[in-house]
Design a protein around this nucleic acid. Structure first.
Length: 440
DNA sequence: TCTGGGGTCCTAGGACCC
DNA sequence: TCTGGGGTCCTAGGACCC
């Protein structure tokens, strides 16, 4: 008598991991939201003057990422340029994750247009092959979002990601253990997830041009050549051994670890006051973002980037958690003056807030420092409300003012707007703007 | 190709403490 | 007093990613 056998999972997949990658995601979302854009060359990134995402119609006509809009319009006169709408993209992304979760139990939201699913064991559970399950989810995504996906199925994340990229768009590639060697023999080492410019260069100097040549090396070779852990992980993953689990949304920690704001300015400048104003503007931006997320920072770091792409940076511990620009500007300014080298051309500044804690969890210290900061926080809460209502930077601190006023292209942008000023004496005279004084 | 903006993770090395 | 070894924590910086 034959008992109904317990179904066994496919041994070709010790783990079954699927990677879903939206095709030309931003441009595709734009085409879904406005039917008039379908079938037409669409480019997003209008607000920054360079292409961020391109529809396949645009790619077919020689447009590539980062290309300037002026150049694109010249080449493709009927191109449709749209401003990025990250709110819409996020909504599509959330829907994408939800659809995958309807079938898969373990899903990692990797980025706005990609996710991983671990479907190990689901074949036995559903009585379907892994290929059928992955294809089913792909169909669900495509019919309900109206966007095509590149989908890869493999025993590890690194392999699944390589597979989903293969034959894009609207592709499905399955890599059971037995197909791995042939596939990797045709895959360049530099195209592997986690192999960046410098690692690729090193590999090639060592005679490794394909991922196939890489996995043919014995493990001892990696040790002898002193490759770091990430590259050892990749080696395992490429051989079909999963060492990077598909992570359910970072269970332990809630949300983000750090927040940053950086801006490049053109032309580059040697003017200390101007560069400081740029930094101050980034501080305001990063603080606004922190308040939006409801967090405050115990640590802050900033950098100055020179014209030849050298970074100078400082990291500072904050005795009291902060998310208000006036306090942060005061804290950072001595460090800025220490770091700044006269005569050097600077092209960008940036600020990162780290060691973030929930803004509600701030405990006042014995000397009332946190209390004072707290009342200042209320002022910036009001500033945020005004800026939400009347547009970004309607209200800003005096320290960042120069970053607006000194840029010829931006002159006039702030005419007639309210100004919120903190005292930096020389600046007020030089610019002849209304001085409202420090609010607190 | 003269290179935007926002993130994460890993490692080497120093400080400090038995 | 000198020497040695080891552990932990922190920070700066590099490398990568989308």
């Amino acid at each position: 008598m034959v008992r109904s056998a317990v179904r066994i999972s496919d041994p070709e997949y010790p783990r079954a991991i699927v990677h879903f990658d939206g095709d030309a995601f931003f441009a595709s979302v734009e085409q879904m939201m406005d039917w008039r854009l379908r079938g037409r060359p669409v480019v997003t990134g209008g607000e920054r003057g360079a292409a961020t995402s391109l529809s396949y119609e645009a790619k077919a006509r020689g447009v590539h990422r980062g290309m300037l809009m002026s150049e694109i319009r010249r080449r493709v006169p009927d191109v449709v340029v749209v401003r990025s709408d990250y709110t819409a993209y996020s909504i599509f992304a959330k829907r994408m994750y939800a659809i995958v979760r309807e079938t898969a139990h373990v899903v990692e939201e990797y980025s706005i247009d990609e996710c991983f699913a671990d479907i190990t064991g689901l074949d036995a559970e559903l009585g379907k092959s892994y290929e059928e399950i992955a294809l089913y989810i792909k169909e669900q995504l495509q019919t309900s979002l109206g966007i095509t996906f590149g989908v890869g199925l493999a025993p590890s994340k690194v392999l699944a990601k390589a597979a989903s990229k293969y034959n894009k768009p609207d592709s499905f590639t399955a890599l059971p253990l037995s197909r791995i060697p042939d596939f990797l023999a045709q895959t360049s080492i530099g195209s592997i997830w986690g192999m960046g410019g410098s690692a690729t260069l090193r590999m090639m100097k060592l005679g490794v041009d394909t991922a196939g040549q890489f996995i043919d090396k014995p493990y001892g070779w990696l040790v002898d050549e002193k490759f770091a852990k990430p590259y050892k992980d990749i080696w395992h993953e490429l051989r079909g051994v999963s060492v990077r689990p598909v992570g359910e949304e970072s269970v332990g920690r809630s949300g983000i670890g750090s927040i940053m704001r950086t801006r490049t300015f053109t032309p580059p400048s040697t003017d200390r006051s101007y560069v400081f104003a740029q930094l101050a503007q980034n501080i305001e931006g990063v603080c606004a973002k922190a308040r939006r997320h409801g967090v405050t920072a115990r640590g802050v770091s900033f950098f100055l980037k020179t014209q030849d792409f050298q970074y100078q940076s400082r990291s500072i511990d904050l005795p009291v958690a902060l998310n208000t620009p006036s306090d942060l500007i005061r804290t950072l300014s001595p460090h800025f003056y220490e770091l700044f080298i006269p005569g050097i051309q600077y092209r960008a500044t940036g600020v990162t807030l780290h060691t973030l804690i929930s803004a509600a969890a701030v405990t006042p210290d014995l000397f009332g420092e946190s209390v004072r900061v707290g009342s200042r926080a209320k002022v910036f809460g009001a500033v945020d409300a005004i800026n939400r209502r009347y547009g970004r930077n309607t209200l800003h601190t005096g320290a960042s003012l120069l970053s607006y006023a000194a840029t010829p292209a931006r002159r006039g942008l702030h005419e007639g707007r309210l100004r919120f000023l903190l005292p930096i004496e020389q600046r007020q005279k030089a610019l002849n703007v209304p001085y409202l004084g420090e609010v607190l």
